Simulated assay, not measured.
Amino acid sequence: MTEHVTDPATEIFVAHRSLLFTVAYEMLGSAADAEDVLQETWLRWVELDLGQVRDPRAYLVRMTTRQSLNRLRTLKRRKESYVGPWLPEPLLTSPDVAEDVELAESVSMALMLVLETLSPTERAVFVLREVFDVGYDEIAAAVDKTPAAVRQIAHRARQHVEARRPREAVSASRTRAALESFRRTIETGDIQGLLDVLAPDVVLMADGGGVKPGGAVRPIVGADRVSRYIIGGTGKAKFTIGYRPTVVNGHPALALLVDGEIDGIMAIRLDDDRITGLYYVRNPHKLTHIDAENRLTLR
């Protein structure tokens, strides 16, 4: 029996693949584009003379960051013509992601949406510095800036994110309780119960990408309007609708089932035990990574 031999370049890349995917996903908000970035990084990596690479992990992160920045500019043009609100692509995540509070917070739908408001370079700098604790010199090499410029960008991005991110980390148990109340009110058509679990200024974003009919082409703001949209939509359904608890991006979420098949993923933002944000992804092109658990890591 012939022993399978893996070349050093492949071994190194595979060892760091989960980290590189996490870097690319946090920069792009798209698992499909993150996979493309890893493919591009791999093709460049295997062409290198490894004898000249002092720190393979740092080099791979730098390559992934550069490819992600290139892809971010393409995504920006794509989003400008996107039909309706754009939401990050949800990932079915493994239990260890949920147990890592720092990692789960960094890939939450709420924070990923905040990162969308940064420029590509600001996002890259913030993700590398605040999430992965990469040194300023390494970040500078990845984004083609001086270390001094990177420090300024990091400070500006940090202030921007802090002003918009959730006020506190919410435990999984509190999130599950809010989702259970939310699910129960929808299934029973209890509008008052739904109003009780929603914050007065709640915002619902429904991402159907122009593919799914009946979607909201603009964010819906306010508990009254959101409750009417949700209860009205489920009440008119001609199909069997169900809800299944799941874990998406390290946080409890609901999978919406239509005739037993997943039709969408609902994630929430919770403040003071009331739902302030509802993120409803229905675009089928963004539901390709919820069939199997995705391993994310900060290391």
Rank of each mutant, 00 (worst) to 15 (best):
G232S: 02
R244D: 07
V221N: 09
I231T: 05
P219T: 07
A237Y: 08
V226A: 00
P219H: 00
T246Y: 07
N249H: 13
R218V: 07
V258F: 14
K236D: 05
F239Y: 10
T234N: 07
G235E: 11
G250E: 11
D224L: 10
L254D: 00
G233E: 05
V248M: 04
G260F: 14
L256H: 03
Y243D: 06
H251I: 01
I220P: 01
K238G: 14
G260T: 02
P219V: 01
S227M: 00
S227A: 15
N249Y: 12
G242N: 11
N249S: 14
V226L: 01
F239W: 08
R225M: 14
F239T: 07
G250F: 13
Y229A: 12
L254G: 00
L256Q: 03
L257W: 01
V258T: 14
A255W: 02
A237R: 09
T246H: 02
R218G: 05
N249W: 04
G233Y: 03
K236C: 09
A253T: 12
I230T: 02
E261I: 15
A253Y: 04
I220E: 01
V226C: 00
V221A: 10
V226P: 01
G242T: 03
P252W: 03
G232C: 03
I231H: 09
T240N: 10
L257D: 01
Y229F: 15
G250S: 10
A255V: 04
G250Q: 01
A237E: 10
Y229W: 15
D224E: 14
G222S: 03
R228H: 15
E261T: 15
T246M: 05
N249D: 15
G235I: 06
G242C: 04
F239P: 03
K238W: 06
N249I: 11
I231G: 08
G260H: 04
Y229R: 13
L254S: 01
E261D: 15
V248L: 03
A253N: 09
V226M: 00
R225W: 08
V248N: 05
G260R: 10
G222K: 02
G232N: 03
R225G: 04
N249A: 13
G222F: 02
G242H: 00
N249M: 14
I231A: 10
S227V: 11
R244Y: 11
I220K: 00
R225F: 11
Y229C: 08
A255D: 02
A237D: 12
P252R: 04
V258P: 06
A255E: 04
R218N: 09
V226D: 02
G250C: 13
P245D: 09
D259M: 01
E261Y: 07
R244G: 06
T234I: 03
T234Y: 14
N249Q: 15
N249R: 11
P252S: 11
D259N: 15
I230P: 05
A237H: 10
F239C: 05
G232H: 08
A255G: 08
R244C: 00
G235H: 11
T240V: 13
P252Q: 04
Y243A: 10
Y243I: 07
